[in-house]
Write a protein that binds this DNA or RNA. Structure first.
Length: 303
DNA sequence: ACTATTTCCTGGATGC
DNA sequence: TGCATCCAGGAAATAG
């Protein structure tokens, strides 16, 4: 289940692999699709664009795109950008290459949901079951979206239209973190998972952060003291940074940007450790359900 | 304006 | 062995 650290890892991997690539054509699977807009609209918006960068916003992977203004040959060879002929170059004066980097015009936004994966692979490689989208790239490779459980989402929007709510936990400071929980009666666990408040934290890292901060997941957000919130903020950042530095962690079906299996796993201290001894005090870890999500904590270490 | 609950979806695990 | 049932989870939709 990709949360912020996994998405960050995947986005970095993709940035390395597909920045500068041109999307030549798009195949989208049968509906119902994990698409936010109609398939033809998405396909049209992606076709003949160049990927400038790939980055993470919350749990979203965002591809920054520009229209690919190709110098096309009339006798129609490949869509290869070619240097202007010497004659043309003389005409077009002293602009050998565009010195001003163009701002992104649109964005391709991918949410992996639970089981979504993005692979960069050769066209010959086997098309996995549950492949919902294939983008053919000018290099000959393909970018594929595979998602068995179909919680993932794909969308395209003009730059500026996509504005994720909430603050980035690794960019915020305590002064922006603390007010998120003021006057909230909801359990702190639910607040941490609320992407409109804080973006990127999912079930696993919420549990791990609360354990490190010594706060029970059911504690009402508004009842947590300033000091405890400060501790929680530090814990959230710590957990996320550790996981990123490990390259992202996962329990089940996680694949990195290369489509390679076999990642390492962050040492979870409470998540998935029901009934096992707390690593600090040996008290058995408890599992409860909050808002339909399993939540793990140490009844002794967390108050 | 909040908060809580339900819904979507399928593979893997469990139980009889 | 085979079949049914349950469970996992993010976020949108719905209900309170």
């Amino acid at each position: 289940m990709p949360e912020l650290p996994e998405v960050e890892t995947i986005a970095r991997g993709l940035a390395k692999r597909v920045s500068g690539e041109v999307i030549e054509s798009i195949w989208l699977g049968e509906k119902p699709e994990p698409l936010k807009s109609p398939a033809p609209e998405i396909a049209a918006a992606l076709e003949s664009t160049r990927i400038l960068t790939v980055r993470r916003i919350g749990k979203h992977i965002v591809f920054d795109l520009v229209r690919n203004n190709l110098v096309r040959n009339n006798n129609n060879s490949n869509n290869v950008e070619r240097a202007p002929s010497p004659a043309k170059r003389r005409k077009s004066k002293a602009t050998p290459k565009d010195p001003t980097p163009r701002p992104a015009e649109s964005q391709f936004i991918v949410h992996l949901g639970m089981t979504g994966r993005l692979q960069v692979c050769d066209p010959e490689s086997e098309i996995l079951k549950h492949t919902h989208a294939i983008l053919k790239l000018a290099s000959g490779r393909e970018l594929r979206f595979v998602d068995p459980r179909r919680f993932g989402r794909l969308s395209v929007a003009p730059t500026g239209d996509f504005a994720a709510a909430g603050i980035e936990p690794l960019e915020a400071d305590l002064d922006r973190f603390t007010p998120l929980f003021r006057n909230r009666k909801t359990p702190i666990k639910s607040a941490l998972l609320n992407q409109k408040l804080l973006r990127g934290v999912g079930n696993i890292y919420a549990d791990e952060s609360l354990f490190r901060a010594g706060i029970r997941p059911r504690r009402r957000a508004s009842t947590i003291t300033r000091d405890q919130l400060a501790k929680l903020f530090t814990s959230v950042q710590e957990v996320l940074r550790e996981a990123i530095s490990l390259g992202g962690s996962s329990i089940s079906d996680y694949v990195d940007a290369d489509g390679e299996e076999g990642f390492f796993q962050l040492q979870h201290r409470v998540y998935g450790r029901e009934a096992q001894p707390c690593l600090v005090c040996k008290t058995p870890i408890k599992r409860i359900v909050i808002a339909g999500r399993s939540s793990h904590y140490c009844p002794n270490c967390q108050k």
